[in-house]
Amino acid sequence: MGFLNRVDPELVPGLSDMEVVKSPTSSNELQAFRQDYARLLRDRAKAARPLEGIARDDFEVPCFDGAGTLLLRRYSPKSVITPAPAIYWIHGGGMIVGSVEGDDIYCETLANETQVIVLSIDYRLAPENGSATPVEDAFAGLQWAVEHAGLLNIDPERVAVAGGSAGGGLAAGVAMLARDRYGPRILFQHLLYPMLDDRETTISSQEFSGIPSWSPENNRFAWQCLLGPAVGTSEVSPYVAPARMPDLAGLPPTLIQVGELDTFRDEDIDFAARLMQAGVRTELHVYPAAYHAWDVYNPAARLTVQAYRDRNEAFRRALWDQ
């Protein structure tokens, strides 16, 4: 059965947007993709109804290497009692595209539905900034946020990390850095169809060639942008490609969500199994007939509503039921 025949009919309309904003497979396509993707997100933001109960403000955070600053955006429910729990969100985009602004709608909705403060970090992208730069920037932003908990009105003992796609992989890497560097205490991690492995050894990493959604060709190009000639070799750090981490013990309780028709399906399932084997409390959802980032392109679909309900319940248990 072909890919399109396997997709949930309610999710088919989202594939049209993916066809218009075609993910890149070469450097020649990257700049056009960045422009088209940013335009799509701006159009969606204009069409969305603003959430009146969420305040938004910005902070400047030093890059991990001191070469400038990063944008950290805070989304605060106006009714929340502070210091409040915090979700530290890391945007997706294959580490080659994406921004804080592109995830404004998602983060506002997340803050509203969980009634916690959401912090979103704008790490530097590849190929202009390769190797460990994105994960080190994201970790530096988390450290800054916890050190400035009073300024941000957050409870430093109730912090979760989260991210989608590349951001999910970065969230996993940040949790590993926090564990191994005795960094901020992370209470929970939410990995939404995370990008975890540069080696392309699973069935799903090869299964969906040429699809409108994120494909093996897109994934290969993104990893090459980040890692250059080191991609697929033993030189790659497990903090950059978290599936390579040999020891997963001591990581925070985890929720992983992925679609059945996602290029990342098998690496995500394998990562969840290894977390459980390492004694980490782990919840795994594989959503039938769903492709990569289906929720972004079909926000009203029943499968999206279900996935967000599962997510919100996991955050409630982790951050409020103490």
Rank of each mutant, 00 (worst) to 15 (best):
R6Q: 14
D8F: 09
V12M: 13
V12N: 11
P13H: 14
L15D: 13
S23Y: 09
T25K: 09
N28I: 07
Q31K: 08
Q31F: 14
Q35N: 14
Y37L: 13
Y37M: 12
Y37C: 03
R39H: 15
L41A: 11
D43S: 10
D43L: 11
A45M: 12
A45D: 14
P50K: 10
I54N: 02
D57V: 02
V61S: 03
P62H: 05
P62Y: 01
G68K: 05
G68M: 01
T69P: 06
T69Y: 09
L71H: 07
L72G: 02
L72Q: 09
L72E: 07
L72P: 12
R74E: 10
Y75D: 03
P77E: 04
K78Y: 06
S79R: 13
S79M: 08
T82G: 10
I87T: 09
G93Q: 11
G93D: 09
M95H: 01
G98N: 06
D104E: 13
I105L: 12
Y106N: 04
N112E: 00
Q115N: 13
I117R: 03
V118C: 05
L119R: 04
L119G: 02
S120E: 04
S120T: 07
R124S: 12
L125M: 02
L125K: 00
L125Y: 07
A126S: 15
D137I: 08
D137A: 07
L142D: 04
W144Q: 04
A145D: 00
V146T: 04
V146P: 06
H148M: 03
A149I: 03
D155Q: 10
V159F: 05
A160C: 02
G163V: 00
G163K: 06
G164W: 06
L170R: 02
A172K: 01
A172V: 06
L177A: 08
D180V: 15
R181V: 05
G183N: 07
P184Q: 07
H190C: 00
H190Q: 04
D198G: 05
D198V: 10
D198Q: 13
I203S: 03
I203D: 14
E207M: 05
S209P: 01
S209T: 14
P212C: 13
S213L: 06
P216F: 13
N219I: 10
F221D: 01
F221Q: 10
W223Q: 10
Q224A: 14
G232V: 12
T233C: 08
T233S: 15
S234Q: 13
V236Q: 01
V236E: 07
P238D: 12
A243L: 07
R244L: 15
P252I: 02
T254P: 03
V258P: 12
G259C: 09
E260T: 07
T263C: 09
T263A: 11
F264Y: 14
E267M: 04
R274E: 02
L275Y: 03
L275E: 02
M276Y: 00
A278G: 12
T282K: 01
E283Y: 01
E283Q: 10
Y287N: 13
A293S: 15
A293I: 15
W294Q: 13
A301E: 13
R302H: 10
L303A: 14
V305M: 09
Q306Y: 04
Q306E: 12
R309L: 08
R311I: 11
E313I: 03
R317P: 06
A318E: 01
W320L: 15
